[in-house]
């Protein structure tokens, strides 16, 4: 019998529900701790980012318009799919040089985190909404609404849990996102894209790029159709660039630094509200006489 040739996976980008190669045709090598070549990854260009933003924008109205309960179901579905691909996720972490026990813990934590945010999908609105006392005949209330298209620069130090912890609160709140995965730990990101792809998440809600922060950061920050930039563990110099460029269309800039990913402090509904806008409505009360100050 002839020797069988392994069928190796080509890791590609995830844009608009498809897995295209980078438009630029460029690649970079990912090596493990021992210097062994693991995979050639797409080196995404600014045009890939542009395409991803177009996809995210067109997916936004559909995703934010879904009922919160439905979004919750879909996030839970992602967790289910992760569970069923557990071994694949663990194997990829091992390939990167993780210890077996660490890989196991990280995958478990990532799945649990997804379930955590699935639960929050239809609850954060009640917690963070308010009825406000005002001194005029108005019924005045405030509710959080999704910011829009969110560009995320995921942690460069985490393969899976950092990515999941970055994406989950953003999409739980009805935003769509474009994520730049960790440059040297990108395998799990693309496998996670496959999971998203098979979890009833509409095309364009999550878009994942692999490439260099130094190349893409400027475009993440200055694209006029991006409403918020979320960054993890960038340097002061990088953050200065982000803040300057974001001023162009007054993007919301959210900056996270030291996070212990496996810890409970890495999950909170405040990660959801960081990319929400508070809309306040003044609703006139019909019988003016009934309108006393305060609610």
């Amino acid at each position: 019998m002839t020797e069988r040739i392994d069928v190796l996976k080509t890791y590609k980008l995830y844009i608009g529900g498809q897995f295209p190669r980078t438009e630029s045709g460029r690649y970079y090598a990912v090596k493990n701790a021992n210097g062994k070549l693991i995979a050639n990854m797409c080196l995404a260009s600014r045009k890939d980012f542009r395409d991803a933003v177009v996809a995210a924008r067109s997916a936004f109205s559909g995703w934010s318009g879904k009922s919160a309960f439905n979004r919750s179901q879909i996030l839970y579905r992602i967790a289910e799919m992760m569970e069923s691909r557990r071994t694949q996720l663990i194997d990829e972490l091992l390939l990167l040089g993780y210890k077996s026990v660490d890989a196991n813990n990280e995958v478990s934590a990532a799945i649990d985190r997804m379930v955590y945010y699935a639960g929050w999908c239809d609850k954060y609105q009640q917690v963070f909404s308010s009825v406000n006392p005002v001194a005029s005949p108005h019924f005045n209330f405030s509710v959080p609404e999704p910011t829009g298209v969110v560009a995320i620069v995921a942690s460069q130090q985490s393969a899976l849990i950092g990515l999941v912890s970055a994406i989950a609160p953003v999409i739980a709140g009805g935003n769509t996102c474009v994520v730049l995965a960790a440059e040297q730990l990108p395998l799990s990101a693309i496998s996670f894209a496959e999971i998203i792809h098979s979890s009833d998440v509409p095309a364009g809600v999550v878009n994942i790029l692999t490439g260099k922060v130094s190349e893409l950061l400027k475009y993440f920050a200055d694209h006029m159709d991006v409403n918020a930039v979320v960054t993890y563990q960038l340097t002061n110099q990088e953050m200065q660039l982000v803040k300057e460029k974001s001023a162009l269309n007054v993007k919301r800039v959210v900056e996270y630094n030291a996070i212990s990913w496996l810890d409970d402090t890495a999950q909170s509904p405040y990660f959801i509200t960081d990319v929400q806008e508070i809309k306040t409505t003044w609703h006139p009360i019909e019988t003016v006489a009934a309108g006393k100050s305060g609610y």
Binding site: V53, D222, M224, D225
Partner: peptide, 8 residues
């Protein structure tokens, strides 16, 4: 030099 949005 900046990608645009339909909003504007």
């Amino acid at each position: 030099g900046v990608y645009q949005a339909a909003n504007y």
